[in-house]
């Protein structure tokens, strides 16, 4: 049996396996897995280091902390323990606008930017699959974005914790983790756009369009469709799942009991999708774009 990678020829010829060679094959397979793991980690670490040195990490953390603290200060003042939920609802509205924008801004040049600097050509010349280059890049940047989100929004959470104590803090933790997932979904989408774009300016344009679509247009359009037509519940679910920000809102609002939002958000709360399905959808919004980017990069000509 011969396996041939359609694009790169990265998979080597595999001889027929008999029992005598089984151990050897297993050992070789383990070695290959270790190699792949090592390569992905090196690439991720490299991306992480570059983001730290370019001060992206500090900037992202600062942006999240500033907005979260500002909103917490104004929406959380003189509130009762129920105010914890209300603050989370306010932060969720902020996160829907801010986090996708920041994630796309941080990721749109992940691949195309590296090509313009010549680093991608250098990496392509190494014995590492292009798919792992995408994965390593996404992991490195994802780690930065996740840390920045946790620290930035965590600072606000710390203040809330001091004010309200532990009661209701689990809601904030759920919000924080959902925000990380939302950021990673848009980061993954940005990496995909960056892989498909031929130039950095194109990638930036696509990223802004994607932000406008998911954050501004999609919900308005969905609301219009829902009010114009008598659609079944599955259509509502499909509309919800087709947008990571809608999934995020449904997830956070679900944990809050649909408090504190209006418009499409109230429709989302009625969709009745379980937190497990919503989490799965958000996870799919992270994994699928990365997988598509890993396939698309094999066609990329440098």
């Amino acid at each position: 049996m011969t396996l041939t990678n359609e694009y790169e020829g990265d998979l080597e010829s595999v001889e027929p396996i008999d029992a005598a060679h089984a151990d050897e094959t297993t050992a070789a397979s383990t070695a290959t897995s270790k190699t792949v793991g090592r390569q992905v980690l090196v690439l991720a670490e490299s991306e992480y280091r570059l983001a730290i040195r370019s001060r992206w990490a500090v900037a992202l953390t600062g942006i999240f902390a500033a907005f979260a603290l500002g909103l917490t200060t104004f929406s959380g003042a003189s509130v009762s323990p129920e105010g914890f939920d209300r603050t989370v609802a306010s932060l969720a509205v902020l996160a829907v606008y801010l986090v996708p924008l920041v994630a796309l801004a941080f990721s749109y040049d992940a691949i195309v930017g590296r090509e313009e600097s010549g680093w991608l050509q250098t990496l392509f010349s190494l014995p590492v699959s292009r798919a792992w280059i995408v994965l390593g890049t996404a992991l490195g940047r994802g780690a930065i974005l996740a840390s920045a989100t946790i620290i930035g929004f965590g600072v606000a959470g710390g203040f809330l914790l001091l004010e309200f104590g532990l009661a209701g803090f689990d809601t904030y933790v759920a919000f924080l983790l959902s925000t990380v997932a939302l950021g990673l979904a848009f980061l993954a989408f940005g990496v995909l756009l960056s892989t498909l774009a031929r130039e950095k300016t194109h990638a930036l344009g696509f990223a802004l369009l994607a932000w406008a679509w998911f954050v501004l247009v999609h919900d308005l359009l969905a609301l219009g469709i829902l009010s114009a037509f008598d659609l079944p519940g599955t259509a509502l679910s499909a509309l919800l799942l087709a947008n990571p920000t809608s999934v995020f809102r449904a997830l956070v609002l679900g944990s809050l009991g649909a408090a504190g939002d209006a418009g499409f958000a109230s429709v989302l709360a009625e969709a009745g999708l379980s937190p497990g399905v919503l989490l799965g959808a958000l996870l799919a919004w992270i994994v699928v774009p990365i997988a598509l980017a890993a396939v698309a990069i094999r066609r990329r000509r440098v």
Binding site: S46, R49, L50, R53, S54, S117, G118, W119, Q121, T122, S125, V302
Partner: peptide, 15 residues
């Protein structure tokens, strides 16, 4: 087995 120096190679400036 091949060491390659591409025509437009480059490296991240902060490394």
């Amino acid at each position: 087995r091949v060491g390659f120096l591409p025509e437009h190679s480059g490296f991240p400036g902060s490394l």
